[in-house]
Design a protein around this nucleic acid. Structure first.
Length: 509
RNA sequence: GUUCUGUUAGUACAAUGGUUAGUGCACCUGACUUUUUCUCAGGAAAUAAGAGUUCAAUUCUCUUACAGGAUACCA
């Protein structure tokens, strides 16, 4: 069902065609200047350099005043005003281009090309005086119009999240700040790539479709390969494949990996999300902590220009060194309870006193994780490393060199959320097999996120893996911090949405 | 999942148990050769779906659908 305005646009398209104008021409249109370049460089003295400019973009506003008009053109760099007078774009007797095409048939959102010269109007606005106007592409669907008045007040701002996420293309056209967030996201990737490449690590790619999923505690997406007639899972982490590459002899490998987890959705969770994982041979988690600090500090600088990043009401300072706590220390700090010596029953009671909700499937490690998640993590705003996790919740991490029952693991917490998780990687194949078996027991207890046993990975470890430090960083979470975004949907171009339902509207007569 | 809130024209908002549901922008018709949310004159266009209470419901109640916020698990 087309709206009245859409019908008008289709009629306009038809009339353009009837005038012999191709509404979707294929020839290259050579642009000489961006609007930003003109705005940044035009002066009275340099006006000669701007006596012939060619620009292209969307027509975003028309102010028609009879035989002359003003219009606004939006290109990828911003907006610039156009002055279009009838007798300048129609030098002969035929005034169709102005009277009919420009005034009547061009709609807001149409792509046009303009050839003309730059000048300043009486009111002082930088403007392109058009000598030639070309239609480059017709728009059939009206864009939401956002207007900013003289006081800088925005009218009819497009804020409806559903519209913005479903129709990101339109969101990007009308909300310039959206572009900025995504440009920052790309800068963040470039910053990390640059950092790791400079250190000599190799960017690699590993399978997304996997016969067994592993490397994290999560429920996977399941799919099926027809030719092989086998079940495949979409990866939940790329840890086990990257470690296989360390076995194979690379010193340092990293991958920006799209991971998929079949779990709840929220402003922190999208079913597909991106992590970077990095593994470096002959290193340990202490070394990795230093690297993460150094890297994230650089990211903050590269992306925002400062080590201090404003996130909501907080100023987060990524300058090294970050605070470091062991997990037991953090829990003691925030709850006053020393749980380091407690067995599962005592721990369960302690958690009960702290009003941390538990369920019977949780074992000792999971309970500690719950307490930490409830009582500590949300309050850690400045970047903080939490180290030395219980062995039960870290089946891929090496046992602590001195502390019984712990592993050499750290998480970096920032703004109350984990942004990074790392360990001295477990490379003892016999220990690894036992840990997998312990996970199988957890699975039997009802933990549907318990890991599965991966024989091929164990075979790789049996060939021998050097001591290795590994880290994973949630790119979306980091992007949220670096762009001061309140939800993951704001740093994903196309966040996952419920299917669009066709609204039931009575047919118009 | 739980909970709260919302759904009025293309869009953003307003109002009302009863006669013609109002405003800005966008849209349509006309005038205007340096304007700028151009201006001026005119026009078209809406109460999510269903049920109930009522003489009368867009307004009150309930159900459904959809959406958003908050909260919980996972990055």
């Amino acid at each position: 069902m087309l709206s009245e305005q859409e019908l008008v646009r289709r009629e306009n398209l038809q009339k353009v065609i009837e005038l012999g104008i191709n509404p979707y021409p294929s020839e290259e249109f050579v642009v000489s200047h961006s609007s930003k370049l003109i705005k940044n460089n035009y002066t009275e003295e340099s006006s000669d350099e701007f006596s012939e400019v060619i620009v292209a973009g969307r027509l975003m506003m028309k102010r028609i005043m009879g035989k002359a008009s003003f219009a606004e053109l939006q290109d990828s760099s911003g907006r610039i005003q156009l002055y279009i007078s009838r007798d300048d774009i129609c030098t002969g007797d035929d005034k169709t281009m102005y009277n009919t095409v420009f005034k009547k048939l061009l709609d807001i959102g149409d792509f046009i090309g303009i050839k003309g010269f730059v000048f300043t109007t009486k009111t002082g606005e930088l403007t392109i005086h058009a000598k030639e106007l070309v239609l480059l592409s017709k728009s059939l669907k009206p864009l939401p119009i956002v207007k900013t008045d003289a006081e800088g007040k925005v009218h009819d701002a497009v804020t409806d999240p559903e519209f913005r996420y479903r129709q990101r293309y339109a969101d990007l056209v009308v909300n310039p700040s959206v572009k900025e967030a995504f440009v920052k996201r790309t800068k963040m990737y470039n910053s990390i790539r640059d950092f790791l490449n400079t250190k000599g690590y190799l960017e690699v790619e590993t399978p997304i479709l996997q016969p067994l999923y592993g490397g994290a505690a999560a429920r996977p997406f399941k799919t099926h390969h027809n030719t092989l007639d086998m079940t495949l899972y979409m990866r939940i982490a790329n840890e086990l494949y990257l470690k296989r590459l360390i076995v194979g002899g690379f010193d340092g490998v990293y991958e920006f990996s799209k991971d998929f987890r079949n779990e709840g959705m929220s402003r922190f969770h999208n079913p597909e999300f991106t992590q970077i994982e990095l593994y470096v041979a002959y290193k340990d988690y202490e070394w990795m902590m230093n690297l993460v600090e150094e890297m994230i500090e650089k990211v903050a600088l590269d992306v925002t220009g400062s080590t201090i990043v404003k996130v909501g009401d907080n100023d987060i300072n990524f300058q090294r060194p970050w605070k470091r706590y062991t997990m037991y220390e953090a829990i003691e700090e925030f709850t006053g309870v020393d749980i380091s010596q407690m067995d599962e029953d005592n721990l369960r009671n302690a958690a009960k006193k702290m009003e941390v909700p538990l369920d019977p499937t949780m074992a000792r490690g999971k309970i500690i994780d719950e307490i930490f998640g409830e009582k500590c993590e949300p309050f850690l705003i400045q970047p903080t490393f939490i180290t030395d996790y219980p062995v039960e919740m870290s089946p891929l991490a090496k046992k602590h060199r001195t502390e019984e029952g712990l592993v050499e693991r750290f998480e970096a917490i920032c703004n109350g959320k984990e942004i990074s998780n790392a360990f001295s990687e477990l490379n003892d194949p016999i220990d690894q097999r036992e840990r997998f078996e312990a996970q199988l027991d957890l699975g039997k207890r009802g933990d549907d996120e318990a890991m599965v046993l991966d024989e091929d990975f164990l075979r790789a470890l049996e060939y021998g893996m050097p001591p290795t430090a590994g880290v994973g960083i949630g790119m979306d979470r980091l992007a949220m911090i670096m762009t001061n975004s309140n939800s993951i949907q704001d740093v994903l171009f196309f966040p996952q949405m419920k299917p669009e339902t066709t609204s039931i509207k009575p047919e118009k007569e």
